[in-house]
Amino acid sequence: MATFNLTVNGQPRSVEAEPEMPLLWVLRDELGLVGTKYGCGIGACGACTVHLDGAAIRSCSLPVSQVGEQPVTTIEGLSADGDHPVQLAWLEHDVPQCGYCQAGQIMSAAALLDGIPNPDEAEISAGMSGNICRCGTYTRIHAAVKSAAEKLS
């Protein structure tokens, strides 16, 4: 066990954990931030996507000891009032069915648009293909990412 001083959603957070504990479980079970989801534990489904220093990463596969001083942003901290353009586009297109994967989808989409402000169809498809939606809301996700891109540009 060791002490880790993290910056999560702009707040300093201190946790006692094994160095190899994945960030996902630090967020969920130690810090009570349950918006980030567990789906596979091997970085294959994208449900646990968060931003590490602005980049989308799979928190299930990142040991807490590797976070260091890089700021962590989770779905709870993506915007103050749930009004990030990607979140608003998700509402506009009524994307969710079960909703479980959508936090990860939104975090991936936000990072994608941060890197490519005006993605074409192929860039959206490729950029969003690390996130599985078992309900099959892909066509709506696609439309929502396009809408968000238009609002951001």
């Binding site: 918006g35 709870e76 979140q87 009524d94 909703g99």
Partner: peptide
């Protein structure tokens, strides 16, 4: 619209 959509998109506990 889905009545839980806002909670889903902001990561509120639901599941």
């Amino acid at each position: 619209k889905n009545v839980d959509a806002r909670k889903i998109t902001t990561g509120q506990p639901l599941f």
